[in-house]
Design a protein around this nucleic acid. Structure first.
Lengths: 126, 126
DNA sequence: ATAATACGATTACGGTCGTAATCTAAAGGA
DNA sequence: TCCTTTAGATTACGACCGTAATCGTATTAT
């Protein structure tokens, strides 16, 4: 897994567009984001450039078309961000996190049971 | 629940010290953090002041003693931060988050079963 | 061919963050 | 009482972030 650079919240929004469809050109990225957010096209371009210099995305110039693609994978990004978050918030332990979510009613017994079934089903295939 | 201001990562470290023991004076906070981190005392003071102006902590001046205490509660902070995180990373849905954690082997069937027992036990008391 | 346009590259600018040093006022020791 | 030490208040400063505008160059329309 490629090293994951620091990606800000706004940059992450751009990454999500690129992860969803790629290769993708600048106008498509800009369209997607000027709809979803209040950003001006130039703002999106800035974010895209920052992602380029960070090495989070790359591009291929085919003729006069710039086509962008992700260099880091979403699953990897989500993994490191999740672990960092859990480390900061809960000292790295899953249990307190889950307990907190249960206390806040963000996680229910039904969720748990559903997840349980999912795991068992997944393991069966192995 | 009091509105939770934006608290940076470094400031959060300071909050954790104050949540653990309070009221607490500046030297104690500084001691705790210069051990745990590489920060100079002045750095800790800066963070503490920023937390004061943000309204995340308060103090009482008793004679020449400044005693700090949290204005926001840790459980509330953790709750909003967790929800924000899950929203950003997983669109707000619990299930994808849990699935991701299972995929990364950060969450096991044993964890789930343990949590299940915990919930059932808790509900029994109600 | 010249003018308008479109798009990538460069530059901008105030705010927050991490990381502190300096300034100042009070308290205690000589 | 005057000096030293201590600790809170003020100031610093470069990096990154959110939010863009301007500059240059290449393409397109007239």
């Amino acid at each position: 897994m490629k090293q994951i650079p620091a990606i800000s919240e706004a940059e992450h929004q751009v990454m999500k567009v690129i992860w969803k469809k790629n290769p993708i050109n600048a106008s498509e990225i800009i369209n997607a984001l000027t709809e979803k957010t209040e950003w001006k096209p130039k703002t999106v371009k800035t974010l895209l450039n920052r992602l380029l210099t960070k090495g989070a995305v790359g591009y291929e110039k085919t003729g006069r078309e710039y086509n962008y693609y992700p260099v880091i994978e979403e699953a990897d990004f989500v993994k490191v961000e999740s672990r960092n978050f859990i480390k900061r918030m809960f000292g790295g332990a899953m249990k307190p996190m889950l307990v907190s979510m249960v206390e806040n009613k963000d996680l229910t017994l039904d969720d748990i049971d559903e997840l349980r079934k999912y795991i068992i089903e997944k393991d069966k295939g192995k």
